[in-house]
């Protein structure tokens, strides 16, 4: 028979081990990315890789169009998803406790679990022809199509996190607002939402990370042209789709190195957004 202290030691060891493994994974991935994209920085050819031209046949390996594509598609998706997601969270809270609200919450949770390829595939046959026929410009494979579907993908993330943070608002505040004569909606909009603003920001940033990191939706719907989009109806390529499309190049080739640069940009972006979140969380009122 083990005594209590021994048991505690063992469980502690397991916890420390899993923390170290998970933490070092992220570090290893970063070092790996950095190691492979190092030649880009040391050889002074970074400018070439950030140029506007991607044409391996002509020796041009610029990934700038992909950075622009990712930025356009993810930010448009967030412009759509952030207000809708927050509004949905407020709406669900407004009717909290009712069967309707519970059903809605199940539904949103279900939505967040649907594999993204299912969204992409459905949109391929429904949204793309619709966009093409509505605007009568281009092929329908464009920034707009990808962003609309990404917004749909991100809304559950934004609203579920927002909703949880609204619920963390101390009960006293809600009761006080009620006793001053505020309606449920007024309490939500004037007291709970402003109190939980950091939560709303983390919800939006995390949602943005998801929009930026998703591969298959942009790959299937954005058209993947290697040019900087000049309109919402232009075909564009994201960093993630670029990695998926070019992954096969051999190790020594320049296109392979350019892929690592794409990975590094994505990694750095997610790192910065996490740092940003930490800073926001620490801010005092």
């Amino acid at each position: 028979m083990m005594d209590c202290r021994r048991k505690a030691q063992i469980s502690r060891a397991i916890l420390v081990l899993s923390t170290v493994v998970t933490g070092s994974m992220a570090l290893v991935i970063f070092l790996f990315l950095f190691r492979f994209s190092l030649p880009l920085f040391s050889s002074g050819s970074l400018g070439k890789f950030l140029s506007k031209n991607w044409d391996p046949d002509a020796g041009a390996f610029g990934v700038y169009p992909m950075i622009a594509g990712s930025a356009c598609i993810a930010s448009l998706a967030m412009v759509l998803a952030a207000p809708l997601g927050v509004a949905l969270a407020v709406f669900m809270e407004l009717y909290a406790g009712s069967r309707f609200s519970r059903f809605l919450r199940y539904f949103v949770e279900l939505m967040s679990g649907i594999p993204t390829v299912v969204y992409g595939f459905s949109a391929l046959f429904i949204l793309v022809p619709l966009v093409r026929n509505t605007f009568r410009y281009g092929s329908g494979f464009c920034v707009l199509s990808a962003s609309l579907v990404l917004a749909l993908l991100v809304i559950p993330t934004v609203s579920l996190i927002t909703m949880d943070r609204i619920r963390e608002v101390p009960r006293d505040f809600v009761l006080a607002a009620g006793s001053l004569g505020a309606s449920r909606l007024e309490t939500l909009l004037r007291v709970q939402l402003p109190y939980a603003w950091r939560g709303v920001i983390s919800a939006v940033v995390l949602g943005g990370g998801r929009a930026l990191g998703d591969t298959i939706i942009a790959l299937m719907l954005a058209g993947n042209a290697v040019s900087v989009p000049s309109s919402l109806l232009d075909s564009a390529r994201t960093l993630t789709a670029h990695i998926a499309l070019v992954s096969a190049a051999d190790y020594e080739s320049l296109s392979f190195k350019a892929i690592f640069l794409c990975g590094l940009v994505l990694f750095l972006f997610s790192m910065f957004s996490i740092v940003f979140l930490r800073v926001v969380e620490r801010l005092k009122e």
């Binding site: 031209n53 044409d55 092929s139 790959l219 042209a225 075909s235």
Partner: peptide, 11 residues
């Protein structure tokens, strides 16, 4: 001849 940059890519 080079292929236009505005072309859509399929897999």
């Amino acid at each position: 001849a080079p292929i236009t940059r505005r072309a859509n890519f399929v897999k």
